[in-house]
């Protein structure tokens, strides 16, 4: 819960930040004292201020990923005091304000850690594995211009709402960072469920789940052990129920792929 503190009180904290010059360099924690911290400042704004201070001292600023600063683009990605996106609930790092901390706190800032998210520099990691999973099947194959009238495909409101719950995923990777096994199941499940819940997504439903899970496995993520650390840190509070749904979809698709009759014409050129 956020304390109702006056914006006048400034305080001081120490940032203990993971510094690593590049993927093959060795990394270490470095302490940066920050004074005149306003409770109304966002955590990333504090990093901006610290970086400006480093710059004028001719030190290299801390590299960190950020963009929209309103919790929707999914770029920001710090693990703060061991928790991806920090101590808040249902927010991304950019929505974390300094009033969540106390005077004298030491705040430990690390990158998201997973083999599938190789470190680029300092707090920046490469999350392109998510894009590769999407490219494997995270779509409905509709050509531009080939769509029927939008209202010709009614979608039951409950399904549309549930699909929207899954679709709110911002692709930040906090689920992977929080998972004890660096598993990407929540991300993939959200994507699979969003499309699988809608009538438009049915024709490719089986193919999609099989392809996306395969791409996920190839990227080197760990396995799900049903501990739900992922959904606990998700900035959009996406539920792990979607993981159960994907498990079911996957198994169904596997068995269908094995036993469903196939047309003898399939595979031939049209």
């Amino acid at each position: 819960m956020v304390s109702e503190r006056s914006s006048k009180e400034f305080f001081a904290v120490t940032l203990r930040v993971w510094r690593q010059a590049g993927p093959s360099a060795s990394g270490r924690f470095v302490d940066y004292p920050a004074t005149n911290v306003s409770p109304d400042m966002s955590f990333l704004e504090l990093l901006d201020v610290v970086n400006d201070g480093l710059t004028v001292k001719d030190e290299e600023p801390i590299a960190f990923a950020h963009d929209c600063r309103e919790g929707i683009c999914g770029t920001c990605s710090c693990t703060i005091n061991g928790k991806p996106h920090g101590p808040g609930h249902g927010i991304a790092t950019c929505q974390l304000y300094m009033r969540s901390f106390k005077d004298g706190d030491t705040i430990i800032v690390e990158p998201f850690r997973a083999r599938a998210f190789p470190l680029v520099k300092d707090l920046v990691t490469d999350r392109s594995a998510f894009d590769r999973i999407q490219q494997a099947g995270g779509f409905i194959s509709v050509r531009t211009g080939a769509a029927p009238d939008a209202n010709s495909i009614p979608v039951p409101k409950d399904d549309a709402d549930l699909a929207m719950d899954a679709a709110t995923c911002i692709g930040c990777g906090a689920c992977v960072a929080a998972c004890k096994n660096a598993s990407a199941m929540l991300f993939v499940a959200a994507k699979v469920s969003h499309l699988g819940l809608m009538p438009q997504g049915q024709p490719e439903r089986d193919k999609r789940v099989l392809a996306m899970v395969q791409a996920m496995d190839e990227a080197g993520f760990g396995n799900c052990t049903n501990q739900y650390e992922c959904s606990a840190v998700c900035p959009k509070l996406i539920t792990h129920d979607f993981i159960a749904r994907m498990n079911r979809d996957y198994v169904k698709a596997l068995f269908k792929a094995k036993f469903k009759p196939v047309s003898s014409a399939s595979g031939g050129a049209g």
Partner: peptide, 22 residues
């Protein structure tokens, strides 16, 4: 009008009424 058709076909979860229409 084509944009809405295209996006709905892609699976964009637009808000729906209880009849399932947009």
């Amino acid at each position: 009008v084509n944009i809405i058709d295209q996006c709905a076909a892609q699976g964009v979860p637009f808000a729906r009424e209880y009849d399932g229409l947009l």
